[in-house]
Amino acid sequence: MGNCRPYLSNTMSDPKTERIEEPKNEPLDEKPVAPSSEENPDSASKEEPARRDFLQKAGSIVLGGAMVAAPAAVGLRVVSCPLFGGKVNGVLARLTTLDSIVAGGPPQAFKVMADKTDAWTTYKNLPLGLVYAQRDKEGALTVFSASCPHAGCAVEYRNTQGGEQYYCPCHESKFNLDGSLSPDNTQAPRGLDTLEVDEEKLATGEVWVRFRKFKAGVPEKKAIS
């Protein structure tokens, strides 16, 4: 009868539990003797058991490993897709007209507005970042990315008693008005990053810049987008 069946595991597992109590530094591949008290005509006596054993072990490891590796490999390929994306060379965006920036005046902050595709969504005219545009007394135009070259916080323009400067509120990097490192700067490894101004558009009185990001924390200016 079904309910009278003995608790097989108790009797069967005795030899195994004994073996486990043995010294702990026993090598793993030394398999305990099969607990079978009866003959084992199928596996033990017919063929070389060692060879068969090895084949089974090798087969299990290779096959089982491959089966888990297959989905993992697909997954790894998919997850690592950002590594294979190329650089896009920034995005060209219109800031304003040249006339609206006063020569010799203080820098003006602009939001960079452009179309952007973020994974699956395509945005029209989205604010992408902040830049400062300024003209010196001769009227030459410079556009700085507001992203601090130290760790990427947004720098601010300040006009205090000490004079005009760019100042980062995060780690107190300081830059001169021409973007170079201020003498009392302690953190930033390089001056503010200038952005490329489109010369053709500038000739028509329009200010367009190529907005892009640069690697933070290193002395050389290296574009990363």
Partner: peptide, 25 residues
């Protein structure tokens, strides 16, 4: 015919399991 002997899960049954998993995959 004598009763088939007992074996350990590793590697006898594991091998069959691995083959079955491969078939499923």
């Amino acid at each position: 015919k004598p009763r088939r002997g007992d074996v350990y899960f590793w590697p006898d049954q594991v091998f069959r399991d691995a083959i079955a998993c491969a078939a499923v995959m």
